[in-house]
Design a protein around this nucleic acid. Sequence first.
DNA 1: GTCTATAGCGCGATAGAC
DNA 2: GTCTATCGCGCTATAGAC
Lengths: 203, 203
Amino acid sequence: MAKKDKDIITSSTEEKILEAARVVFTKKGFAGTRTRDIAELSGINLALLNYYFRSKEKLFKVVMIEKMQKLFGVISPALNDANTTLEQKVTLIVNLYADMLIKNPDLPIFVLRELNLNSEAFGSGFHPHKMLSDSFFVKQLKEKRPDENPLQFLISILGMIIFPFIAKPIFKKAIGSEKAFEIIINERRALIPKWVSAMLRTK
Amino acid sequence: MAKKDKDIITSSTEEKILEAARVVFTKKGFAGTRTRDIAELSGINLALLNYYFRSKEKLFKVVMIEKMQKLFGVISPALNDANTTLEQKVTLIVNLYADMLIKNPDLPIFVLRELNLNSEAFGSGFHPHKMLSDSFFVKQLKEKRPDENPLQFLISILGMIIFPFIAKPIFKKAIGSEKAFEIIINERRALIPKWVSAMLRTK
DNA sequence: GTCTATAGCGCGATAGAC
DNA sequence: GTCTATCGCGCTATAGAC
């Protein structure tokens, strides 16, 4: 037991800081965030934040890794299920993302924003591209479409379900309320699998 | 002639500052940018930046409006051409975006990042959703698919062509070089129109 | 118009009492 | 562990000479 039992008996203060950090970093990005705002929101003092996490950057990295795992880990079980067809996997992936992203609409723009701003700083440790490329899903795509790059389908599927959350500020006015946005997303749960099936049938 | 001829005889200094501002703001975002960096890159002094643009924020807004027009304006002529079919429009839109985004790969993440960070600050003046919703392209979509929301197709088409540029840091390692990325995008010039045609034929 | 110098403030981080 | 107070730096913006 190398890590003590910090995972089980989580320090309440540490968790309060983390929870506030998640909110503020997500909303304002790393550069736009002031540690004072995190301290205030968590109801503790600025000094305590540095006592627990040493620096703004170290605190950010904890949040960033969490968020990346959330964004890419969600579909991991679906990608590698040997007992489902290609079409079933697409349906599952789309629905898993729809569920998770409706609850966490800012997650994709947060992760992709920070990855683009700081290309190298967070490359270590977590490799989403391997998770995708080595998946059973990609293997099935190759079998069905041996002459095409499976990445092309992958990009399209992820783009169709994730992009609306990133481009929300643009479509917001065309859509109206938050509720209307959710209706659009919920419609896509059925539309995208139907579309992808059609894409997989083209010659 | 209300605007003088500034459009023609552009002040060299002003343009030098603007050009540097485009580079730095795009790379680091508004919050991550220091006006000192812009001054240094443009080869002028920090004071001169404020002399021409009054403040960091005002300079940013100039750049932001430019970039938004570039991102959403490219397809404007294609969207409203009364003499092309739905399929032809899709092909044109995809190719116009591929051309422009290969030359400006950071443009989408820049605009969407800043719009998401500052939802209200840049809403005034430019309304991409109207450009899209009121277009002849959407009218044609409605005719072909009267029972479906044309926005659903629009989101998918834009997502398929724009998303890879936003998610580049993720796929980068799976793809390899910059050249390989461009090959993927160039393949999509033919793939996406073919796929969208199939989508439009589904029942 | 362009520069140097600096005002004035807000930031991340720390010292040190409790 | 938690606080108050403060350091020291770097930022945007401006004053003022040329």
